[in-house]
Design a protein around this nucleic acid. Structure first.
Lengths: 342, 342
DNA sequence: TGCTCATGTGCAATCGTTTGCACTGCTGGA
DNA sequence: TCCAGCAGTGCAAACGATTGCACATGAGCA
């Protein structure tokens, strides 16, 4: 592999000059530029990114920590979409994306810390927010640059972008109420995740606002998996007073609920209404097509990346926090109830 | 950030000694090791990965090129699964994964080449194989280390791991035949991808082997999207002699076909049988549950990574090629036909 | 004619490691 | 008693770029 030294020799200039030609900047005569460029081409020279990083003290890489938690499990399209969003920003800035993803949460934490501490990455985007996690505190203490997709409960000075999950829960529940359903149950995700707590809060808010009573037995946890959701839904339907609508905290769980309902011989949406969250491809593909609250996943990625870029370039220090809204998407699994109850 | 120099000073030894303690190797007295370790801990020292890479001439990173082609679109679980497989191997070897993924194929190629040439990554795993692509030739010429998930048509000395797509096509078609279907159409993916050609070949083989006649109008291209598949299937059903079974080259397209069939008032599997490929979560979730040929995606990732590791460590030079089999998974969309025709 | 400055280029230090080689003591066998 | 050999450590040269500073040249101006 040729180095700048070789190029310099060939072009009859010094390495500094070559360097300056490459970085484009500075005052180099057109003639010299030309000769250096030619030499580079002739030798097939490509600058060594590692050496460059060492000298310039920036890795040119940012880490993306993807928790393989059920929360953003791969049954749904969260992960690819968020990457797409991030990538669209990073590529403009010439950054590469280092993926940190493993089955083991401990390994994940260790790798995240290692990547940042070893300066292998200049910053990180983290896509999980458990209720209790000391990782963020560590990162803040070490003044590492990172952005969270999600949010933190305590008042750590952390930059994050999140969707408004309280509102998401509220919108979904509210929609069911307006569609005429009266006994609305919620199948929630693992309460270890903040997103779960938020959506539950929204659910409760809509319930009480409508003057309905919150029933403990109508709120069940299915850990973001379809199987658990199906089972949970069966139990709900077996109650003395079974619910006439189900709000599932994501589309995957909603699909489980749908299955349980249909198996039990009930009709959707006539007997039981269902709504999910995410609007992943599955939702429109199911029969009946699933009503849902769409989350702007791509945008979450975009904003997380933008904020991180700012953090890195401006040396910005005040944490920025951002909340994006969801959108109600009404499909077959809930829309027509009004007709029946009317 | 403390450097090895600081640690060395504190421990009263030379940098070389510190380095040797870190790398674990070599002959360092227990006492010295202890002192150095203590110094590192006291200073909160973490070795700089970039400097390390420069000196050791290995990036410790491998690139994963994810083509956002429809072939491995995110509607299915190909991408996450393959990453999981790769990750499980890489983490054992202490490698990080650099993700190269963009909407634009040209940018993708450029980034791939740049990452390898700049030695930002030690090698790459590439997940696309278009029929005509000069990328591989370039990479081979430059002696870059890479493994392809998929395969090449020409006889380039390229290491790859692929599933046996001819056989996959054969198995799916054969199954339909054995289930009693007689007019079997195929909805294929974009013929620009080798995988498509292979599955078509398998389809034809099974057809002719069963003494059936290959009909040109029974082979249609739907570019791996559900919408196109639905449309294509409608047209098939409108033929004078409509098919009584559909082999779709992936589950996503199969779901489109299912929708078209049901819309037209026909029953599955009684009137029309359907089979897909992949066995992604969607397949078991659909109603009727979709018969399919399962592809060992996780294993593809594992083997690609293993082969790349060998390429990097042994300086191995003979290309290794590997083909993994698929598995027939019979569900509701095809199984019972035998009962009716009997 | 002499001085100032802008322009273009080179020198050499620096980034933080790794690693081949040389050196110092000591141990133990002949 | 001498010397080979080894364990333990340090020196200093890489690795391949970036960058502050110094320097040479020639133009512009008084």
């Amino acid at each position: 592999m040729p180095t700048m030294k070789d190029v310099a020799r060939r072009a009859g200039v010094s390495v500094s000059t070559v360097s300056r030609v490459i970085s484009g900047s500075d005052r180099i005569s057109a003639a010299t530029k030309e000769r250096v460029r030619a030499a580079m081409k002739e030798l097939g020279f490509h600058p060594n990114a590692i050496a460059r990083s060492l000298a310039s003290k920036t890795a040119g890489t940012i880490g993306l920590v993807v928790s393989r938690s059920p929360e953003n499990a791969f049954a749904n399209s969260f992960f690819p979409e968020v990457i797409r969003g991030i990538g669209s920003v990073l590529s403009k800035h010439g950054y590469y994306l280092l993926l940190i993803m493993t089955d083991d949460p401990e390994v994940e934490r260790a790798q995240t810390l290692a990547a940042l501490r070893s300066r292998r990455v200049d910053g990180a985007i983290i896509t999980s927010s458990r209720v209790s996690d000391t990782l963020f505190r560590h990162l803040v203490d070490e003044k590492q640059k990172f952005v969270l997709i999600g949010r933190v409960l305590d008042d750590l000075p952390v930059s994050y972008v999140d969707n408004d999950n309280v509102k998401v829960g509220y919108m979904a529940t509210r929609h069911l109420i307006e569609a005429g359903y009266r006994r609305i149950a919620m199948i929630s995700g693992d309460p270890q995740y903040i997103v779960s707590l938020d959506r539950i809060e929204g659910y409760k808010k809509a319930i009480s606002e409508a003057g309905m009573e919150f029933r403990k037995e109508y709120l069940v946890n299915a850990g973001f998996t379809r199987e658990a959701a199906e089972e949970a839904c069966q139990k709900l339907l077996a109650l003395d007073q079974p619910p006439d609508a189900i709000f599932a905290a994501d589309d995957t769980m909603a699909s489980g609920a749908v299955r349980a309902i249909l198996k039990s011989g009930l009709r959707i949406p006539e007997d039981v209404g269902v709504i999910g969250v995410n609007d992943d491809p599955l939702a429109s593909m199911m029969r009946p097509a699933l009503s849902t609250v769409r989350i702007p996943v791509f945008e979450l990625g975009v904003w997380a990346a933008r904020i991180l870029m700012d953090l890195l370039s401006d040396g910005e220090t005040v944490p920025r926090q951002m909340v994006l809204p969801g959108t109600l998407v009404v499909r077959e699994s809930s829309s027509t109830r009004g007709l029946f109850s009317a």
